[in-house]
């Protein structure tokens, strides 16, 4: 195929209704409210964080609401059959966020809870940087940052060739927007009018050397994607209602365009004393602080 194909099938809206046995909710209990899902994702992440004593804990707490809405509102999948052809694909471009995705995959029933203790330990299936060859539900090997969105473009093209109604969700980060490859993929998706692509950016204003806005000015992010031919939603990524509305609009949009949900999140969300930490790209939490962290999280749990 040469150039954008107007003939590629659009993602049919009626195909989005989950067929029998498909889709959320996954793990324990139906009709679990999203805030409870988000709480459990955070709790799983804290337990994994404690195994290492340090790591990408603040990111996991920050992005938990986005993952709750992705896995328990937006996406279709079968927990017992992670490679079900009709599933929506979720690509974790940011490999170091694996702790967050494992936490969600456990809550979704795709991974067993008792593997939490193995996070990032020898011979675990849950390595610190997410890899497709290790973990059910981990669609790609991320970690060399800036690669996920390009893979998403190819999967979207492939799904269209197969006349599939599945969406591809690709989670990437503000730091990743520094990479040229992200913008090559963004232009490609816009050019191919990939209406089965939902990009999700976690804008936590942090990357390895410090606050993202100080490292490299990536704003205005929404205007950039718009200029590349995308439909843009920008929301408070810790506001579940706002996220639900944004994901709904992104999925239902009739226009043949890729869609992006830019999520402004707060690192460490749900554990106030971790929220307050400044250097939190790779957070060190002292042994005696873990119980405090769990208590703080529990204190914010909604009934």
């Amino acid at each position: 195929m040469a150039g954008p194909q107007p003939g590629l099938p659009a993602s049919g809206q009626d195909e989005q209704t989950p067929p029998d046995g498909a889709g959320p909710p996954g793990g324990a209990g139906h009709n679990v409210p999203l805030h409870e899902r988000a709480y459990r994702i955070r709790r799983n992440a804290l337990r994994m964080g404690e195994v290492q004593g340090q790591g990408y804990i603040a990111q996991a707490l920050g992005v938990a609401d986005v993952l709750a809405v992705s896995y328990f509102h937006a996406m279709r999948y079968r927990p017992e059959e992670p490679e079900w052809e009709g599933r929506d694909r979720f690509l974790l471009s940011i490999g170091h966020y694996a702790i967050a995705l494992y936490a969600a995959l456990i809550e979704a029933g795709i991974l067993p809870e008792d593997e939490i203790e193995t996070y990032g330990t020898d011979d675990s299936r849950l390595p610190m940087s997410g890899m497709a060859s290790y973990t059910p539900g981990m669609e790609i090997t991320g970690g060399s940052l800036g690669q996920g969105l390009g893979i998403a473009v190819g999967m979207c093209l492939g799904l269209k060739c197969k006349r599939s109604g599945s969406f591809v969700y690709c989670l990437f980060s503000d730091g990743e927007c520094d990479e040229g490859s992200v913008w090559e993929a963004a232009m490609s998706a816009g050019s191919w009018k990939l209406d089965n692509l939902v990009g999700i950016v976690d804008v936590n204003n942090m990357q390895a050397d410090g606050p993202s806005t100080a490292v490299l000015n990536f704003e205005p992010l929404g205007a950039k994607f718009e200029a590349f031919g995308w439909h843009v939603e920008r929301v408070d990524g810790n506001d579940l209602e706002a996220l639900v509305a944004a994901f709904d609009r992104a999925r239902r949009l009739a226009e043949p365009k890729p869609r992006i949900v830019i999520c402004d999140t707060r690192m460490g969300k749900g554990v106030p004393f971790l929220e307050a930490r400044e250097r939190n790209h790779f957070l060190r939490v002292e042994p005696e602080e873990w119980s405090r962290a769990r208590e703080a999280l529990d204190a914010g749990r909604l009934a």
Partner: peptide
């Protein structure tokens, strides 16, 4: 396609981030 089976639960294992 996965590199390894689900591990048996075990006590203490060495962690990846220890010598970061």
């Amino acid at each position: 396609k996965y590199r390894r089976p689900a591990p048996a639960p075990a006590g203490s294992r060495l962690t990846t981030s220890a010598m970061i």
